[in-house]
Design a protein around this nucleic acid. Structure first.
Lengths: 238, 238
DNA sequence: CGGCACGTTGAAGGGCTTCAAGCTCTGTGG
DNA sequence: CCACAGAGCTTGAAGCCCTTCAACGTGCCG
């Protein structure tokens, strides 16, 4: 993970302006954010923030994909959220000076903008637009978290894996010409297990059985959904 | 569920003023909220909002306890959140005109204040204090939800039931003179199962085994924690 | 006192994990 | 270029945790 050179620095303003977070924000205000913004290129496995690290900044994903992962005591990690383009990471935590509930980690090559909390702290009270945006983001995340709680509480593993895939397709899916869907992220059985609350062996078995029914095609760290409607049906419990 | 008579109406202002949500809010602003506020007494089982119902109001619990419960397709319900005194219910959903993700239900006799969205919508942009409060509330709820996702993903049932109890004690616990803890809420095995993502039979078995070790004392819709430190130890996985 | 909701307990079984061994793919250095 | 290491994946076998079903208690209220 490193800062880009001058070439990208000059594009900082346009980059910021394109973000949903700064939509409808006056240009002169944007200058303030620009001053301390850093554009970072990240690689798979790069860590933006470690668990329990205190925070003086927040991030916006411009390209690529990051995740929030929580490390449990006996080595079983759980992926709590995924962030893709335009998603804001750790803003509220930063505004309130709290610690990260997990590690923020990049899943692939991408671009992330690092913003200092100070600027936002200064101006946020004068721009309800920011608050409304933040509230909506949080509402959606809470909704998602509640969904997952219900799924983990009541649904069998196969269904949960299907749900994870459908959810990931929606966020990271790459539609091909022939209607097939793949992920442009290296997605291991282990990763999928962490999304679904199960083990890598079970994921492997389920994927294999789906492959026999031509619902997916699998490879090393690669999953292609051939039949999304069947996938959705399984996710709904049929 | 019904509105109280004039006697309580006259106390509306003092009631509102005592709420954390309105802490530091100027008196003249409070008048606006007061105008449309309703003080409701609720009984066990009363429903404040049904799942998927659109919203033009929100609630603050003044006394008692409510929960957000989601109904799954095959009859297995899941309790997503509990609300006790000073907790705000459905404010963000109301502000953004969204539908409830579950049913809001009272768990015992209590008092709930019903506030119309209109007033808050008018003034919220001028009082960042409200936004900061709301953000913090949501942050804590998201934190809680993430914790539960991790627990459901990685921990065995006994541990999860222990965690549910510890969590409930913190929110609803009643410390007795001799250090024992009980709930002043009728809490059935079924309810506890819905908190922990398991079945009522399993809860019954676990509680019985704890009773044999003098960690709890149980009765019909009643649980008394005798040894909270042991309870916490189980919750942590020992 | 009878009905009903809540609770207990047993037995059966299955879904999923765990452990273990071997396989496949990929990148790397000799 | 090939061999090798290592990470990822597959597969089997064993078994346990938990659910499910079912029957029977038990406390509570009309």
């Amino acid at each position: 993970m490193h800062q880009r050179g001058r070439k990208l620095e000059t594009n900082k303003r346009t980059t910021l302006r394109q973000l949903v977070l700064f939509k409808e924000v006056p240009v002169e205000l944007l200058y303030q954010f620009e001053a301390t913004a850093q554009i970072l290129t990240v690689e798979r496995g790069d860590v933006l923030k470690h668990q329990a690290e205190p925070s003086d900044c927040y991030f916006v994903v411009q390209a690529g994909c990051c995740r929030l992962v929580q490390h449990s005591t006996q080595g079983r990690d759980v992926t709590l959220e995924t962030f893709v383009a335009d998603d804001v990471i750790g803003l509220v935590i930063a505004l309130q000076g709290r610690k990260y509930p997990g590690t923020i980690e990049s899943l692939k090559t991408g671009v992330v903008i690092r913003l200092s909390t100070a600027t936002m702290l200064e101006v946020v009270d004068s721009y309800p637009l920011f608050y409304r945006n933040i509230m909506n983001m949080m509402r959606l995340r809470l909704l998602d978290a509640h969904e997952r709680i219900r799924e983990l509480s009541t649904e069998p593993v196969e269904q949960r894996i299907a749900r994870s895939l459908v959810r990931l397709v929606r966020k990271l899916g790459d539609v091909w010409g022939d209607g097939r869907l793949s992920f442009d992220v290296a997605l291991s059985r282990q990763d999928l297990a962490q999304f679904s609350g199960t083990t890598l062996e079970t994921v492997s078995r389920v994927l294999k059985s789906w492959e026999r029914e031509n619902i997916v095609e699998t490879g090393r760290e690669r999953i292609i959904v051939l039949d999304l409607s069947k996938m959705r049906a399984i996710a709904r419990g049929y």
